[in-house]
Each structure stands twice: as structure tokens, then as C-alpha cells.
């Protein structure tokens, strides 16, 4: 233990010049990711007059006006869209997490005929981008009369092959077979095993899946764009898009779009900051093992 730590110490000291390159690369990566966010933040503070006439990185004076205007736009339709997004992302991610966790657990811990076939099918499903499925899904939902309903956006996002795959990997690693065996010997039924033994062990994995799905649904554009006709059911992405593509003879409402985009990522940032500790426990629990 001691030798390892001193070795690591020495390496860290000696390797400082070497470490500069990865650090610089990471910083560059961070800059690359954060710059657009900063740009949105700055641009959202500019009034329509300032947007294209002042320097790119200087703050404007119109942030509060933009916010007020955005909230007043079409009698506060922004809030309706925000509520819809929350419903789609929150509800969809919760349901998706539940389905993924149960499926992953089943695939990892039970042997039954067709298990590998199902799993291979799911792996194949990962390779098919969701974008390609949007139009066929729309045609299907139209057939069963569910197009242009909340379900049309929720249902297709619940079954997510990658999440199931992730849950299976996680369940295989996090739930020892011996623990399940012990539970069985003690007379626990399969339901009890799953809900009381397996699921608590899978919580960190489930948080990951939830976050993944939440962000994916929050940002999803094509599916709701195609599925929904009624603008009262639009999520924020599609709703803000109607401000951008306002027709050839209408100026795009850039200041409202930018402010809307900024406000719509605030919940995501908040979610990540609050959920982060689950990831930390995830990492540390792995380390102890």
C-alpha cells in the first residue's frame, strides 16, 4: 500500500510536464463544451437591437425584458411547454428506468429459453438510431389512434435498448448470485427478491439510466415534432422551434428563443448537480469492492 502511494506520488511529481498535455486537452474539451453555453447565457441578455450589433461576448441590457416578453408570449405558452417537457422527460424517464431495471435484472439473473435471443435483439436495437424510427412509429400510432396524444411521445421512449443493456451489465456486477440464493433459502418469493434485494442494489445504476433518459427526452426534437399536431402538447424543443421557423415573412424571434433555450437548460443543470452524489456513491462502492 505504502509503496504504491509513494510510487504514485513520485510519478505525479516527475510526470508533471507529461500531465500538462492531458490537462490542456481536457481544458480544451471543457472550453469546447462550455463555450456554447456561455454564448447562450450572454446572448440571452441582449435586447433584439443589441443581438446583432454589439460584440459577441459583451453582455446586453435586455435580459429581464426578454424574460418578461417570453413569459408573456402567447399568454404564457412557455410555461405550458415547460410543463409538457417535464411530464415527458420526468414521466418517460421514470417509466423507462423501471422497465429497464426489471428487464436488465431478469436478463442478468435468470436463465430461460430465448434469453440470449432477446438480449441479442436488444443489442441490435441499440444500433438503430431513434431518429430512424420516428416516422414508422408515427404511422403506427396513427393506426391505433394515439397520434397527437401525450402517450405518443411517452410510450416510444419507455423501451430503450441501451438502458436495458446498461441495467443488465449493472445487475450482473452489483447483485451477487449468492445473495439471491440466500434469499431463496430463507423463503423469499421472486417478487420479494427483486423488490427488496435486487432493486436497492441497483439504485446507482438506475440513477444513471434515469439521468440518461431524462436528458435524452428533454432534448428530443424529432419524435414530438412528428407525433404532435396540437401546439398545446408541444414540449419546449418543438415549441421554441415554432418561434425560430416563424415563416418566411416573419422575423425569427431570436431574443425569445435564446432566453427560452437558456431557461430550458437550467432544470437540467440543477438535476445534474443534485443527482451527482449518487454517481459518487456508485464510484466509491465500486472501489470498496
Amino acid at each position: 500500500m505504502a509503496t504504491v502511494s509513494t510510487a504514485a506520488h513520485r510519478r505525479a511529481r516527475a510526470g508533471r510536464p507529461v500531465g500538462a498535455v492531458p490537462t490542456a486537452l481536457l481544458l480544451l474539451g471543457a472550453l469546447y463544451c462550455l463555450f456554447p453555453v456561455c454564448w447562450v447565457l450572454i446572448a440571452a441578455t441582449k435586447s433584439p437591437g443589441e443581438l446583432f450589433s454589439t460584440a459577441t461576448l459583451s453582455f446586453g441590457t435586455g435580459f429581464l425584458d426578454n424574460v418578461a416578453e417570453l413569459f408573456a408570449y402567447r399568454d404564457g405558452v412557455f410555461w405550458l411547454w415547460a410543463g409538457n417537457t417535464l411530464l415527458y422527460a420526468g414521466g418517460g424517464a421514470l417509466l423507462s428506468t423501471a422497465v429497464s431495471a426489471v428487464s436488465g435484472y431478469t436478463l442478468a439473473k435468470y436463465r430461460f429459453p430465448g434469453r440470449d435471443a432477446i438480449f441479442n435483439l436488444l443489442i441490435g436495437g441499440i444500433l438503430v438510431p431513434a431518429v430512424v424510427l420516428a416516422i414508422p412509429q408515427y404511422l403506427l400510432f396513427s393506426k391505433i389512434g394515439l397520434a397527437d396524444s401525450h402517450w405518443a411521445v411517452l410510450l416510444p421512449q419507455i423501451l430503450h435498448p441501451y438502458s436495458i443493456y446498461l441495467a443488465r451489465i449493472y445487475a450482473a456486477a452489483a447483485i451477487p448470485d449468492s445473495l439471491l440464493e440466500a434469499g431463496r433459502i430463507d423463503g423469499a418469493g421472486e417478487w420479494r427478491l427483486m423488490s427488496r434485494v435486487a432493486m436497492p442494489l441497483m439504485v446507482p445504476g438506475m440513477v444513471t439510466i434515469f439521468l440518461f433518459q431524462f436528458v435524452a427526452i428533454w432534448n428530443n426534437f424529432l419524435l414530438p415534432f412528428i407525433m404532435l399536431g396540437d401546439d398545446g402538447k408541444f414540449p419546449l424543443t418543438v415549441g421554441l422551434y415554432t418561434l425560430l421557423a416563424a415563416g418566411a415573412n416573419q422575423p425569427a424571434l431570436y431574443n425569445l428563443i435564446l432566453t427560452g433555450a437558456l431557461l430550458s437548460i437550467v432544470p437540467l443543470i440543477a438535476l445534474f448537480l443534485t443527482m451527482q452524489r449518487y454517481w459518487k456513491t456508485d464510484l466509491s462502492s465500486g472501489a470498496v469492492k
Binding site: 415534432f225 412528428i226 418543438v238 422551434y241 421557423a245
Partner: peptide, 18 residues
């Protein structure tokens, strides 16, 4: 209220087809 432009036409055609 929809988004305008080429996407609006594509969307309408899809809806009509469905």
C-alpha cells in the same frame, strides 16, 4: 401553431399519409 418552412410541409405530408 406550427413551425413554418420546409419542415411544416414534410410534417403535413406525413400526417396526411398516416
Amino acid at each position: 401553431k406550427q413551425a413554418g418552412g420546409d419542415d411544416a410541409a414534410a410534417k403535413f405530408l406525413t400526417a396526411a399519409k398516416a
